[in-house]
Structure formats: structure tokens, C-alpha cells
């Protein structure tokens, strides 16, 4: 900002001293925003509003007659006798369980990794790449890979555990809670690098002098972490927690490919169920209503988190 102003000023000074400083047309900022705004409107805003309209109908884009049903798609979800409603809430529960179990490790472990990778040691760049590498892989690759590793009878993991005499035939993908442990572990391994990179960027913004001063004052490394690193990362931490909660609540591929939603429908998460309802059973109105219920929960959660963080910042 300051650079811009000073160069503008100097140019103005060189030309004619009396002329007012040129700051561009009033619409300039909007012109810069326009490309993103256009994409946002077309791909987010319009579908979001249009989805509400869909959710009030028994909608199928291929069938001419999509009757208006009012709030029926919503009230059905709260009908105790409806088996479909039961399935929906079970999938919401599955999403809740996954979020609850995956967020703490996805916030804590990458932080530890980032702190380690921030020290100077030989091969640091190499290890930074190693930790980030899995994130580059697509979910299809992860799914097939871990399908073979975690298979209860012919999988690599159980084979090694058996040879070491630790355990035999643990049902990693066919029983709960083992399936949840698998899904959370796979997700942590897969996306750890992403959060770690964000932490690393945050760590590099903390002034060295603070650590030096603390050392002079005799603070040990734990105290330095607790009183300098953590407060210095406050904003980054808020960001990481928020995106991790949202990413976990939107988990789909892992349980679709590794556990097939099973055993039974224990690990069939909300997004998977909604996709099935809308694209598999062609009940797009009902699926849209479910999406809004899921969104409602996420909005409440996000608002709650922000309120909490604001208090923390004060």
C-alpha cells in the first residue's frame, strides 16, 4: 500500500504539481475482484440459492414434472417412523465421529512435525518434501493402496503384525472401532503435510529475537514452545482448526474406497449418503434438503468456534 502511494505521488510530482493524485477509477477494485466474483456467483452463490429451490421439490432434472412439495423433504428427516431418515442421521453421526477423532491428531501431529522441521539439521528440505509427499496423491491411489495394506485376511499390515507375534487378523476395515482407527490414521498420514506446511509458514513469522531473549532469561524449550511458539501461532492455529474441521466433515473418498461405508453402514458418512440419495436414487430434492441440514450444523459449529477463538485472542 505504502509503495503504491509513494510511487503515485512521485509520478504526480514529476508531471504537474497542481494536479490531484490519480488513484484510478472508483470501479478499479471491483474490476480486480470481478473474475473471482464471477466464478463465485456462477459456481457457489447461484447453485447454493438454487439448491434451496430444489430442496422444496421432488426434483429430477431429467423428469419434466418435478412437483413442489414445500418443506416435506425437511420434515421427512425428522419423521421417527421413516427408515430413510434413520439412515440419514446415522450418516450424520458417522461424520460427527470421524470429525471428532480426526481433528485433534490433524491439528497436533502436524504442529509437532512443523516444529521439528523448523529446526536446522542436515536433510531438512528432504524431510519437508517427504512429509508433504502423500498429500500429492489422489484419493483413488490412497484408497487402493490402503485397501491392500489394511485387508484383514490378505493385507500387509496384519501379515507383519502376525509375523511379529503382536496380533492376528485384526479387522481393520470390516469392524468398528477398527475401521474408524484405519480411516483416521489414513487421513492423518495423507493430509498431515498440508497442515504442517501452514504451520511452518507461521513458525517462520515468529521473530528469532523472542526465542533468544527467552533463552537468556533461562526458559527451557518446553517453556519457549508454550509461551512463544504457541501464542505466535494463534492465528495460524485458528485457521488450521477451521479448515481441518470442515475438511473432516466433508470426508467421503476414504470410507467410499477403503471401507465401502461398512461394516453395514457404520462408516457411511453424510456426504456419501447424500451423493447416494441424489445421484444414485435420483432424489435430488431430498439430497439437497439433507445438504442444507448438514450445512446448518457446519455453520453452527463454525460460528461456535469463531466465538471461542475470539475470546481466546482477547
Amino acid at each position: 500500500m505504502s509503495v503504491q502511494t509513494s510511487s503515485a505521488t512521485s509520478r504526480a510530482a514529476a508531471a504537474a504539481p497542481a494536479r490531484p493524485v490519480r488513484r484510478g477509477a472508483p470501479w478499479t477494485p471491483y474490476a480486480f475482484l470481478a473474475p473471482y466474483l464471477l466464478l463465485f456467483v456462477v459456481f457457489v452463490a447461484v447453485p447454493a440459492v438454487f439448491g434451496l429451490w430444489i430442496s422444496l421439490h421432488n426434483w429430477d432434472y431429467l423428469i419434466d414434472n418435478s412437483p413442489f412439495v414445500g418443506l416435506e423433504n425437511y420434515t421427512r428427516l425428522f419423521d421417527r417412523d421413516s427408515l430413510a431418515a434413520g439412515d440419514f442421521w446415522q450418516s450424520m453421526r458417522a461424520t460427527g465421529i470421524f470429525t471428532l477423532y480426526s481433528v485433534p491428531p490433524l491439528v497436533a501431529i502436524p504442529l509437532a512435525v512443523a516444529v521439528l522441521l523448523n529446526r536446522s539439521f542436515r536433510g531438512r528440505t528432504f524431510f519437508r518434501a517427504v512429509f508433504f509427499a502423500p498429500y500429492v496423491l489422489g484419493i483413488a491411489v490412497i484408497g487402493v493402496l490402503f485397501g491392500f495394506i489394511l485387508d484383514p485376511n490378505i493385507g500387509l499390515l496384519n501379515d507383519y503384525l502376525g509375523r511379529l507375534g503382536i496380533a492376528r487378523n485384526i479387522p481393520w476395515t470390516t469392524s468398528v472401532p477398527e475401521a474408524w482407527i484405519s480411516l483416521v490414521s489414513v487421513t492423518v498420514w495423507w493430509t498431515l503435510g498440508f497442515n504442517a506446511v501452514i504451520y511452518l509458514a507461521g513458525l517462520q513469522d515468529i521473530p528469532r529475537e523472542l526465542y533468544e531473549a527467552a533463552s537468556v532469561d533461562g526458559a527451557n524449550s518446553w517453556q519457549r514452545f508454550w509461551h512463544i511458539t504457541l501464542p505466535g501461532l494463534r492465528r495460524v492455529l485458528v485457521f488450521v482448526i477451521t479448515i481441518t474441521v470442515l475438511a473432516s466433515a466433508n470426508m467421503f473418498g476414504q470410507s467410499y474406497l477403503i471401507t465401502h461405508g461398512g461394516p453395514g453402514s457404520e462408516t457411511r458418512v453424510a456426504i456419501m449418503f447424500i451423493a447416494e440419495e441424489g445421484l444414485g436414487n435420483f432424489r435430488m430434492g431430498s439430497a439437497a434438503a439433507m445438504s442444507y441440514v448438514l450445512m446448518f450444523f457446519l455453520v453452527v459449529l463454525a460460528t461456535g468456534m469463531f466465538a471461542m477463538f475470539r475470546r481466546w485472542e482477547d
Binding site: 447461484v46 438454487f50 430444489i54 432434472y61 419434466d64 418435478s66
Partner: peptide, 16 residues
């Protein structure tokens, strides 16, 4: 061709 599934849905409801 440009847009998401929802938009496809939006635009091709009638006619058939």
C-alpha cells in the same frame, strides 16, 4: 458445459 451439475439441473428442467 461451463457449470456444475446443479446448474445443468437448473437449465434443462423443461422441454425434455
Amino acid at each position: 458445459a461451463l457449470s456444475a451439475v446443479l446448474l445443468v439441473a437448473a437449465c434443462s428442467g423443461g422441454g425434455g
